[in-house]
Simulated scan of single mutants.
Amino acid sequence: MDAGRATVGVEEEFLLADPGTGAPVAKNVEVARTAKESGIDLQLELTRCQLEANTAVHTDIAALHRELRELRRSIAACAERNDARLLAVGIPPTAPTEVPVTDTPRYQRIADNFGMLGHEQGLSGCHIHVGIPDRETAVQVGNYLRPWLPLLLALTANSALYRGVETGYASWRSILWRRWPSAGPPPYFSSSRDYDAMVEMMLSSGTILDRKMIYWDVRPSISFPTVEVRVSDIPATVEETALLAALVRATVVMARKSLAAGRIAPAVPAGVLRAAYWKAARSGLAGDGVDPFDCHVEPIRTLLGRLIDHAAPALEEAGDRQFVDEAFAAVLARGNGAHRQLAAFRARRDVGDVIREVAGATLEGCG
């Protein structure tokens, strides 16, 4: 397939915070209403302190990057009009023990059935959708992407502080998120029928309440003809989101090329993948990772370079290689969101410094 024609879209989840304290504020309904008046449709998330913004469908990463900048700038203005601050951060750096659940029937039902998992949230991620011809292809592509998911998590890690303290993890969001019974890396599926059988079991057992609660880090989309990659924290900057989108699309294209050539995805054992996930969440860009293909421990940066090399044919075909190389070099030099949060906090042990750093990164490059 032609990588330059493969479609890609992005969903970014944001935290709404008090401009003074940085604590989450329950204003997603109000900010969404203000955005609607400006022609922007925002989605309400599980907790009242969160919103989701969706881009249009793109084939050009530069155009996607422009829309991401415009969306963040516009939504931040809508938040400000409601005395709130927009933050691109994986978890609230400072938060109460419980966040109000958004008052919709579905979200209230989730909260009733899953207890504190539904209340102790405020977890914000980024979902990349890549166009796919059918569900069978989406399931097989998911098998190919499983080993690369920890690297995408390490690249975008953006949740190092929680309730005013260091968590010891670059992505504490991913640790909290995997408490849900349907979250984390999916099993390896032999076919879409195998996938559907697992989903039906989860529905019948009450493990999930509906198909939208399949929270696996890669899945056939419930709503669109896409494969959806959901592993990442919301990246700190729009450039990092665009980098993530370009890498995910190229990796999906490479998976489809392998499928077309009759090559089957390697069935990485769940235990190996779990170890790779934990190392990615713990270290982010700063330490070592586990290569799921051979179980060797190597620097995360080396493994990410290997991912880019793997995706290189599709990146070059789409005209994205230069952007990816430059954006990757920039995030290595500057640090991702987790690195920036820790640097800000360790200077004076002041969470207010972290909030200001996160707020600046959220609109960095947005004009």
Results as ranks from 00 to 15, higher is better:
3 A>L: 05
6 A>G: 06
6 A>S: 06
15 L>I: 03
16 L>A: 00
17 A>R: 02
20 G>A: 15
23 A>W: 01
30 E>T: 07
31 V>F: 01
39 G>L: 00
40 I>R: 06
46 L>E: 07
47 T>M: 12
47 T>Q: 15
48 R>H: 11
53 A>G: 05
55 T>S: 11
57 V>C: 10
59 T>V: 11
64 L>G: 04
70 E>K: 11
70 E>P: 07
74 S>V: 12
75 I>Q: 04
76 A>C: 14
80 E>S: 14
80 E>F: 10
89 V>H: 04
89 V>W: 00
89 V>R: 06
91 I>M: 12
91 I>A: 14
93 P>T: 07
98 E>N: 14
100 P>W: 06
103 D>I: 04
106 R>E: 06
110 I>A: 03
111 A>M: 15
113 N>T: 13
117 L>A: 11
117 L>W: 11
122 G>F: 11
123 L>R: 14
123 L>E: 14
129 H>M: 11
130 V>F: 03
137 T>V: 07
139 V>M: 07
141 V>W: 05
143 N>C: 13
145 L>H: 05
145 L>R: 04
145 L>P: 00
148 W>K: 09
152 L>F: 14
152 L>S: 02
152 L>P: 03
154 A>C: 08
154 A>K: 12
161 L>D: 06
163 R>V: 09
173 R>Y: 08
176 L>F: 11
180 W>R: 03
183 A>M: 04
184 G>W: 01
190 S>D: 15
190 S>T: 14
192 S>F: 09
192 S>Y: 10
193 R>H: 12
195 Y>W: 08
196 D>C: 07
199 V>T: 03
205 S>D: 10
209 L>Q: 02
213 M>P: 03
219 R>W: 00
219 R>E: 09
222 I>G: 14
223 S>K: 15
242 A>H: 09
243 L>C: 01
245 A>L: 03
254 M>V: 13
256 R>W: 00
259 L>M: 10
261 A>V: 00
262 G>V: 04
262 G>I: 02
267 A>D: 10
270 A>C: 09
273 L>N: 04
274 R>E: 09
276 A>I: 05
279 K>T: 14
280 A>Q: 08
281 A>L: 01
282 R>T: 10
282 R>N: 10
285 L>Q: 01
287 G>Q: 00
288 D>I: 10
291 D>M: 06
298 E>P: 06
300 I>D: 15
300 I>R: 14
302 T>E: 14
303 L>S: 11
303 L>E: 07
305 G>Q: 01
309 D>M: 15
312 A>N: 04
318 A>R: 08
319 G>I: 07
324 V>D: 02
325 D>I: 04
328 F>H: 10
329 A>C: 02
329 A>S: 03
329 A>V: 09
335 G>M: 01
336 N>H: 00
338 A>W: 06
338 A>G: 07
340 R>K: 12
341 Q>P: 04
345 F>D: 08
346 R>F: 06
355 I>W: 10
360 G>H: 13
365 G>M: 12
